[in-house]
Structures are given as C-alpha cells and as structure tokens.
Design a protein around this nucleic acid. Structure first.
Lengths: 127, 127
DNA sequence: CGGAATCCTACCGGATACTG
DNA sequence: CAGTATCCGGTAGGATTCCG
C-alpha cells in the first residue's frame, strides 16, 4: 500500500521501473506530450492548429503523441466526415485533471529556473 | 511575461522547446532523476546506497544523474577523504522544494494509473 | 568505494514521399 | 486536411574495463 503522506510515497516501495510515478513519467516525460496537453487545456483544437501552436513538433511526432494520449484515455479524438476531413482533439475529464499537477510543476519551473541556470553557470565555470 | 493564473501559463507563450516547463522536464523527465530525488527525499545517502535503492540504474547513469542534479544546485555532494572514499549525497533547499510538485504528480499517477491502464487495454483490444 | 573511459546498440525522432 | 510508410542519423544508455 502506498500512501501520500510520507517520503516513501514519492518513490513507491520498492524503487523500481514499474512504480506509478515511473510509469506516468515514461508517458508524459517525452518531448511533446506536456506541450500538447497544455494546448488542449485551452479547449478543443484541430490537428493543424495544435501543430501550429506547438512550435517545432513534426507531423509524425504530433500524431504519435495524440495517439498515445488517446490510448491513455486523456484525449478524445473526433472525426467529422466532411471533405476534407476535420479532426478535433479535446481533453477528457481525466485529461483535465492532469492539468493541475502539470501546473504545479510549471510553477516550480518558473520559480526556480533562474536559480538552476545560475547554478549551472557556476558549476560549468568552476569546472 | 508568464503568469500562473491562466491556461497560457502551462505552456508559456509561444509554445517552443525553450519554455520553462520544457526546460525543466528535459532535466527531470529522464528515466532516473525523479527516482533519485525520491530516495534523497528520505535523507542523505551514499552512492552505493542510492544505487541499491533505485532498482535497475547502472553506475554510469547514476553518476550522470547525480552530476546533473549537483550542477542544477538541487543536490549537494560531500566527499569524506577516508580510505576507501565515502561520498554522501543530499538534497539542497532548492532540491527539497521540488519534492512538492513531484508528489502532486505522483498523487495523480496513483489515482489515475488504473484508469489509464484500463483505457490502454480497451484501446489495444478494439484495435 | 566511487567513479572515468571506451565500446556498442536500440530506438527516438526528423525528413521525405505517398494516400483517402 | 490528416494522416501512413519508409528511410536514416544522433544519441541515450547498457556492458565492460580500469583507476585513486
């Protein structure tokens, strides 16, 4: 049993590659998933719109990322059989709940990015 | 300027690989960093102890992970010049603040891992 | 004990071309 | 428009060996 009130909660016990945190980070820790979830956090969006708003993502990786999120039940994919085809993507209920912890991590990032960069510079300069 | 009160906060504006969240996830999103931080959240530990408690990590990757965290100012490395050498690792103040958002993510992971797995099975079975 | 150095491989992910 | 298919290079990371 894992609780959330002790340090053991963060890692699960025992530490292994199969713990919940590891599993989730394996999924959302990739280069694009978090950014895509961030875009969809603003509301439904089409494939090409997501592609525009997630700077630098290739068509292949965006497709792959969206498929993964759909498979996880975090994103709903809706095909409108017009011509040409329209495909809308939106966060599911579960997907929306992910926004909260992601924002916590972003908050930390913004608050500490300066310190981290400074530390890196000092470390590199000291050699 | 990035605020933390809107959806735009999660992604930064514009979306690119240089936003704070992306930068931080590039650092902690790897296979081992989160697990190592989790171990050190319990307190100071020696190299070999961390290696034992983080199941599956190679010596190379543990060294690399710890160097990265030290460079970021999140971990302090202390060498005791005995023979043989003793090296202790501990979270810094900044490192300890990272435990909070990480726990938020773990909490989400634990709460949703079951649903995610079920969704994956359904998705794969439906083909 | 706690690494550094080297070698080697899988696979992540970009570029390109084609399809319904 | 929203993909799929194929090729391909760079690199993350494991195994092994050596060092203070």
């Amino acid at each position: 049993m894992v609780t959330t009130s002790s340090a053991a909660a963060l890692r699960g016990d025992p530490y292994d590659a199969n713990c919940a945190t590891r599993r989730i980070l394996d999924r959302i820790g990739d280069r694009w998933t978090v950014l895509v979830v961030g875009v969809l956090g603003d509301g439904e969006a089409r494939f090409s719109e997501i592609r525009r708003r997630v700077d630098g993502v290739s068509q292949k990786m965006l497709t792959q990322t969206l498929r993964g999120l759909e498979r996880d039940g975090l994103v709903r994919r809706t095909v409108h059989p017009t011509v040409p085809v329209r495909v809308e993507y939106a966060l599911t209920e579960a997907g929306r709940t992910l926004l909260e912890p992601l924002r916590a991590l972003q908050k930390w990032s913004i608050e500490h990015l300066g310190d981290v960069s400074a530390s890196q510079n000092a470390y590199d300069h000291a050699e």
